[in-house]
């Protein structure tokens, strides 16, 4: 996993609520056996017509919007547990997703892949979307060390689990930690009654 400290960039707005992981990456693109290349099919059915031509009114196809930050409506990433959703966002080039609410499994998957979910208040989200609509090159800064997000002089703090923060800052995975405590896991197994 790559280290994450701070991202400053413009953002792509997607102010739809309840964006599920089937929209982020439809099931028919889950047939790969590696983690690579999922960005090509990110938001496939919102992004492309049936003949593979881009849908011009979709934000990712709109030249005015760019950057490493996706700003989306509440309950982002609901539905399937497919980690491919996080892989496809990251592979496309996003490093941060901002929303007023995230689905649990998606949030965990994102953190395990160096993609930072930033949960902000609903009013802050609406102001941010409004600012991007008014000026698509609005610069947004997401600072993991300080745990805040800033644009146009407005700032809001966000929560992140302290352990996951350490992992993101240092590029560590849970698996590194768990493998290191194998003896404790074995001792736990030996101590319990199993029916």
């Amino acid at each position: 996993m790559e280290k994450f400290e701070k991202v400053t960039s413009a953002a792509v707005p997607l102010p739809i609520e309840d964006i599920d992981t089937d929209q982020i990456i439809p099931a028919r693109f889950l047939k790969a056996t590696s983690r690579d290349g999922f960005g090509d099919n990110l938001f496939r059915d919102w992004r492309f017509n049936k003949d593979d031509s881009p849908k011009e009114d979709f934000a990712l196809n709109d030249d005015k919007y760019s950057g490493e930050i996706l700003v989306a409506g509440r309950n982002f990433g609901c539905g399937s547990s497919r980690e491919h959703a996080a892989w496809s966002l990251y592979d496309y080039g996003f490093k941060v997703v901002v929303s007023s609410f995230f689905a649990d499994i998606f949030k965990g998957n994102a953190l395990n892949n160096g993609l930072l979910p930033v949960q902000v208040s609903e009013p802050f989200l609406q102001e941010l979307i409004e600012a991007i609509h008014q000026n698509p090159s609005t610069e947004i800064s997401v600072d993991l060390v300080a745990q805040n997000i800033t644009f146009n002089g407005k700032s809001e703090a966000f929560d992140v689990n302290p352990y996951k923060k350490e992992c993101m800052l240092n590029g560590y995975d849970d698996i590194d930690y768990l493998v290191n405590i194998k003896e404790e896991i074995e001792a736990f197994e030996a101590s319990r009654t199993v029916y």
Binding site: S81, E83, I105, N109, N113, D174, L178, V179
Partner: peptide, 22 residues
């Protein structure tokens, strides 16, 4: 509960997961 693929690898390697208690 359902998990992502990174966690599938964690369980394969250690039979454990790091979880915040819901």
């Amino acid at each position: 509960f359902g998990i992502g693929t990174s966690q599938v690898a964690q369980v394969m390697a250690t039979q454990c997961l790091l979880q915040s208690k819901p």
